[in-house]
Write a protein that binds this DNA or RNA. Structure first.
Lengths: 194, 194
DNA sequence: TGGGGAATTTTCCTATTGGAAAAAATATCT
DNA sequence: AGATATTTTTTCCAATAGGAAAATTCCCCA
């Protein structure tokens, strides 16, 4: 039956991706099984599309492979196809927290965006962890929406930006943001994809 | 055990997301079951985190919900873990006018930017020239900083955005912005290079 | 080329999922 | 409020996933 066939092949394709991710790191089944806390046989079967992993095992496996769950599906993900279009209403963001920031990804459901816009809140008086300079490919643009922000860029003097000010830099430079005043600061950050 | 607990809650959170997606469209379990080709009970249990869906059911369910598989997991993960450098103070922009807009290019002196941020002012009650749909390669992101803006995108219903709302679209689609209220509107637009 | 260890697949069994239908809970209408 | 229709949850059983260990295949090197 065609239904089953396509489903079968989809699972097989997914398995191939799993194996590829594992091989990419030169890990054996045992390595990943260990890291993920799964049985070797389970991973073996999954990679060959013999079984359909359950959600919980998948989460563990993603963890063991060191990738985000969503990344596992990135390939079959909907591309930002020519003609795409999306609106984000104030507040309906996808919230995410790191040790240093709280930020909300806009349009998380869009894949292959060439830009990633995020709204972020910087807590006042937050102690920054300077060991944790962030670095990634691409370029970055930041505007201060509310409050004041001090931007630390590796190897440069910190820059303080007031509301309305903006900065543009190469994301490969280690960078960190911190609220400058006594109030929380609100920022809009846009990262370019590559 | 903590391991199991976090896993459990993760599954529950995932379930909530599923239910939210379904409710968002005012679909009943039966509706989605029908669209996805799954049993009602399966979806019910999944939404409550009673069971861990298998890969194949998850693929069908995503389909039934009309979302991409990757979107289900849109945690978007490490977008934030992958030079030049420039600061623009509020107001020190490079001013430019067109028949429809007044906008100010940020960082005009920077070359090879992969993104072009611009601040724009939309005059209230401005008569738009709809012959003049703008089209260009790349993608575009717009946030409303002040006021309200109606975005006209070719072949779609106009969308009205309030302060804080944003939109992301393919710049190849003809597009136009207009202030919506009685006051001027202030927008931030970022275009990707290609 | 053949031994020996590492990596992967298979086997076999238990635990869990997935579906159909009954039961329960909600919503709707008069 | 009662009756009925709609939606969701529960139940129970068949189908499938997951793990431990045995069997097999794959490599590497003498």
């Amino acid at each position: 039956m065609s239904e089953e066939e396509t489903q079968e092949s989809q699972r097989v394709a997914f398995g191939r991706r799993l194996r590829q991710l594992r091989r990419q790191n030169n890990w054996t089944l045992a390595d990943v099984a260990d890291r993920a806390g799964l049985a070797i046989s389970t991973i073996s079967k999954a990679e060959r599309g013999i079984i359909a992993l359950t959600y919980d095992r998948m989460a563990l496996l993603a963890d063991g492979l060191g990738v985000d769950m969503a990344a596992l599906f990135a390939e079959q993900g909907e591309n930002f196809t020519p003609g795409s279009f999306a609106v984000a209403r104030k507040g309906e963001f996808h919230r995410q927290e790191t040790s240093n920031y709280v930020y909300e990804m806009l349009f998380p459901e869009l894949w292959n965006k060439s830009m990633s816009p995020m709204m972020g809140t910087l807590k006042a008086h937050n102690v920054m962890d300077f060991e944790e300079f962030v670095r990634h490919p691409g370029q970055e643009f930041l505007v201060v929406m509310e409050g004041a922000v001090t931007v630390h860029v590796e190897g440069r003097e910190p820059v303080t930006l007031q509301q309305g000010d903006s900065i543009y830099f190469d994301s490969a430079l280690g960078h960190l943001y911190a609220s400058d005043g006594d109030n929380d600061a609100r920022i809009l950050v846009v990262c370019s994809a590559s």
